[in-house]
Amino acid sequence: MSGWQTLTGSAVALPHSNIDTDQLIPARFMSQPRGAGYGSFLLHDLRGAQEGHLLDQYRPKVLVAGRNFGSGSSREAAVYALVDYGIKAVFAPSFGDIFAGNAVNNGLLAAQIDDGVLAMLIATMADTAGGAYVDLTTGCARIAGHDIGFDLDPVRRQKLINGWDDIDLTAQYSEEIKTFRAARFAAHPWALPTT
């Protein structure tokens, strides 16, 4: 995965809270392999119910949405759908914990903003798109003419910037893991499944 520091594009606002992962990608699409791309599945039923949905009009890189975005299922496919559609950053007051972890593992920024900032962005953009510039290094963004700060865990910030891969990262600790394993099962034999 390649890292990134800044992005420039357009933003749209979805003024709904609780946009859960079942909405982001309905379960019936999840048997597909990733190769063909998941972009067409993004918010499939929401977009399908509305001709010329904002997303399809503007193909934004940035999404602004209500609280508890990405709540629900652990399906990483929800992030694949966003990323494959071309979205690089989501700004919302809160995110599902598992979603937020999945996002960073796929180079997607899940940026936390205040309720007040959300209300302002929704009011400004309404049914149209705004310009967006996001800088991970400073933690600042300019969306629809508003300069806003956002909260992001510093570890996740570094990971997005560097495009780190955890499996590679963990390889350097293989001795520690081996030692831990041996000690754990020696001290607690019951922790091994009976076979």
Binding site: S74, E76, I98, G101, N102, N105, D166, Y173, I177
Partner: peptide, 14 residues
């Protein structure tokens, strides 16, 4: 956990 974490756990059990 998500799929990336599942792959990590499969690979290194952590």
């Amino acid at each position: 956990v998500g799929a990336t974490e599942v792959a990590h756990i499969l690979a290194v059990q952590t």
